[in-house]
Design a binder for these strands. Structure first.
Length: 226
DNA sequence: AACCAGGACGTGA
DNA sequence: TCACGTCATGGT
């Protein structure tokens, strides 16, 4: 019925469960989702979401581990940490000057939450948090039904003819969410599907949508009618 | 050696 | 609104 949902099923059958978001402290790539995430995990997901901007997650793991061995994977510790020490810890994931600032901006906001789930709107007002990072935090940290769209998602959907090249973030997000909502009525299953789908797209994207021309060898069916 | 990675922001037109 | 430059380390 839904080509998008079929796309998900094909990717899942191909690559299997991805188990995102990978938590580094309690076990990297652990495949149980742990509903709901505890406080430390939420915070780690948020930090990782900032750190992973335009970088590979393996670099992020190094940064998070640098913080962890300093026992600094906590709000108060990072806040009190010397700024240069923070920059040094997150250096492996690049843009360390910007990201250190972003992290401190986020922590200021995070403390006002008192453990509550942030709204998307509020997250977007924090410097350094754009649409993708906000959805990343909400989807994987707070288990909210916010589909995460990234560069791979757009490239793939453009290549397969689902959206136009100039499609904006919100349009692509709506396409994915509306398609999946029609097919999946159970909320928890829908959430896991959002979480897995994005992870599967990244896995698939690394193989077929990182080098130009994009989509070479991609086995997913095109949306275009022949 | 060039190119890209699980982006966001600031600027000028 | 939008195209473009900038931020930076690390792997291929």
């Amino acid at each position: 019925m839904s080509k998008i949902y079929n796309m998900y099923k094909t990717l899942y059958q191909t690559y299997g469960a991805q188990g995102w978001w990978p938590i580094t402290v309690y076990g990297y790539h652990k495949l149980d989702y742990m509903f709901p995430r505890n406080k430390d995990e939420k915070f780690e997901v948020c930090l990782g979401s900032i750190l992973t901007q335009n970088t590979t997650f393996t670099s992020v793991v190094k940064s998070l581990n640098n913080l962890h061995v300093k026992n600094a994977l906590h709000v108060d510790r990072i806040e009190r940490m010397d700024i240069d020490e923070l920059k040094d810890a997150i250096r492996p994931s690049g843009y360390y000057n910007q990201k250190a600032e972003y992290i401190l901006e986020f922590i200021k906001f995070y403390k006002t939450l008192n453990g509550e789930t942030p709204t998307r709107e509020a997250l977007l007002h924090v410097k350094g948090i754009g649409e993708e990072t906000a959805d990343s935090m909400l989807l994987y940290g707070y288990n909210q039904l916010e589909f995460k769209v990234d560069a791979y998602t757009k490239r793939m959907l453009v290549h397969l003819g689902f959206v136009d090249e100039r499609a904006k973030y919100a349009e692509i997000k709506s396409l994915m969410q509306n398609s999946l909502k029609k097919c999946i009525k159970d909320e928890k299953e829908l959430l896991i599907t959002y979480q897995e789908f994005h992870a599967l797209i990244v896995e698939h994207g690394k193989k077929y949508y990182s080098k130009k021309p994009y989509g070479m060898g991609c086995f997913l069916p095109s949306h275009r009618v022949i």
